[in-house]
Simulated scan of single mutants.
Amino acid sequence: MTTRPPGRGTDRSRETLRILTENITSGRWPLNSRIPTESQLMAELGVGRSTIREAVSSLAAMGMLEPARSRGTFVRSVNPVSSVLSEFLGQHDAAEVLQVRRMLEVEATGLAALLRTVDQLARLRAAHERDVAGDASQGIVRGETPGEFHAIVVEAAGNSLLADLYAGLLRGIRSSMRRGALRSSITRAERLADHARILEAIADRDPERARRAAADHADRDLTIA
């Protein structure tokens, strides 16, 4: 009878978690995209189902992944999200959550127009183009909550605290939408047009125009149900 080397299972679990995390943080799995199925991940990584489930469960607990019954598992954040912050936000009125969202996005967009790098602008353009194309072949499902486009804007603002607050806020917004407290109030075409105006202002390094575009978008994107 053969025995498994001590720690092998733990090593595989850690390596699987590392790979899945890297797929998220590197952008291989964009925000709001559906990750491969358990069977696909098992074949790709050469590990068992329990190892995949353990890694996915860990990332879900950190707010980076979100399982959706009968639809798959989706990327929700490129960084761990504080569950304490998300729960705290969830205790507040939906109108207050939307007000805070507006403040964070407007300031982040203004800073992004001033501080964005050439690489960040290129990634922002690519994210917008993917949104326009709606490439389902990549498993990208564009939801009604802010996704990859807004995440890159916040990253380009260059403030890690703002990014952490925003990630927690988004988790709270998704929770409010699941409860029916918030809903989308504009069409996909209107959302894309708003993003195009934000992108143009950031590309032109015009912080005031960027803030106005972000404010207009936040004011009409979501509403209290």
Rank of each mutant, 00 (worst) to 15 (best):
M1E: 08
T2N: 05
R4W: 10
R4Q: 06
P5F: 04
P5Y: 03
P6Y: 09
R8V: 02
R8E: 02
G9C: 04
G9K: 07
T10D: 11
R18S: 14
I19V: 15
T21M: 03
T21H: 12
E22H: 15
E22W: 15
E22C: 02
R28N: 09
R28L: 12
W29F: 15
P30F: 14
P30G: 10
N32R: 06
N32P: 00
I35S: 08
E38I: 09
E38K: 02
Q40E: 15
M42Y: 07
M42P: 06
L45G: 00
G46C: 06
V47K: 08
G48F: 10
G48L: 06
R49V: 08
S50M: 05
S50H: 10
S50W: 09
R53T: 00
V56N: 00
V56G: 01
S57C: 00
M62H: 07
E66H: 14
R69G: 01
S70P: 00
F74T: 00
P80Y: 12
P80N: 04
V81H: 11
S83N: 02
S86A: 15
F88H: 09
A95E: 12
V97T: 08
R101V: 00
M103H: 10
L104D: 04
E105Y: 06
E107C: 01
T109H: 04
L111S: 06
A112R: 05
A112D: 06
R116S: 15
T117L: 05
D119N: 03
L121F: 06
A122K: 13
A122M: 11
R130M: 13
R130C: 06
D131L: 13
G139Y: 13
G143C: 02
T145G: 08
T145Y: 15
F149W: 03
H150Q: 07
E155W: 11
E155G: 04
A156I: 06
A156E: 05
G158P: 09
N159W: 10
S160E: 14
A163T: 04
A163M: 12
D164H: 08
Y166V: 06
A167P: 03
L169F: 13
R171I: 00
R174K: 02
S175D: 11
R178D: 14
S185Y: 04
T187C: 01
T187Q: 01
R188V: 12
A189F: 12
R191L: 14
L192M: 11
L192I: 15
A196E: 13
R197H: 15
I202D: 02
A203F: 08
A203N: 09
D206N: 15
P207Q: 00
P207K: 00
P207W: 09
E208W: 11
R209Y: 01
A215F: 07
A218V: 08
L222D: 04
L222M: 05
T223D: 03
